[in-house]
């Protein structure tokens, strides 16, 4: 139980996917202009991360590891995640149109997002108490990573709405000042580094 809590907290704060591991920077900068789109995107990311882990973990353990094909990890995972997201999209469109409409634009966007692929790959390199993650722990890790993504998106959407209204120097207006703000938020997250130790 203690291990699960450690993994969960670490995934959200110390190993924050966006601000500590620098994965998923594209949606982080692209979709963080407004709070509601940031939340919608994050919800889609959490959903897909969980689903991707749920499917890729058994594939790794029961197929790739058995035949000693660890080097196929990346390509197989991309294939599986891409197909999975498409399938989820079709199912949502048919049965939950309201959810499809709110997630619809973001779902295909994160099909091959590096944060999603990253979490499925890092599930196998992460260790807790000197051993790899179990299936449940991997799912918790993905959930934490997704929530960490949401946290970063929400915080940054707030920062960004302030930055947009600030009187930035002409040369820094737009993307440059956004990147500077992102780096400062990232530095803020370094403060959590001691938490895991």
């Amino acid at each position: 139980m203690a291990a699960i809590i450690t993994i969960f907290i670490a995934a959200i704060l110390t190993d924050n996917f966006v601000l500590s591991k620098f994965l998923g920077i594209c949606p982080f900068l692209g979709v963080s202009k407004k709070l509601n789109t940031a939340v919608g995107m994050s919800a889609a990311v959490i959903f897909v991360m969980l689903l991707a882990t749920a499917v890729t973990y058994p594939i790794q353990v029961h197929i790739l590891d058995v035949y000693d094909l660890g080097y196929l990890q990346t390509i197989v995972f991309i294939l599986v995640i891409a197909a999975l997201v498409q399938l989820v999209e079709i199912v949502l469109k048919k049965y939950i149109p309201s959810l499809y409409k709110s997630l619809g634009i973001y779902l295909p966007l994160i099909t091959t997002n590096c944060a999603v692929l990253g979490v499925t790959l890092l599930n196998f390199t992460k260790t807790v108490d000197g051993r790899g993650l179990t299936y449940i722990e991997a799912l918790v890790n993905s959930l934490g990573a997704g929530l960490g993504f949401m946290l970063a998106m929400v915080i940054f959407a707030g920062v960004r709405s302030r930055v947009e209204q600030s009187d930035a120097p002409e040369a820094l207006k737009g993307l440059p000042i956004t990147l500077i703000a992102a780096s400062i938020v990232s530095v803020g997250f370094l403060g959590f580094a001691g938490l895991g130790a």
Binding site: Y67, L69, L72, V76, V80, A82, A83, Q86, L87
Partner: peptide, 14 residues
């Protein structure tokens, strides 16, 4: 075979 099978399953499934 494994990659082709996974791709095929995904493709046919979709």
């Amino acid at each position: 075979i494994i990659v082709a099978a996974i791709g095929l399953i995904a493709g046919v499934g979709l």
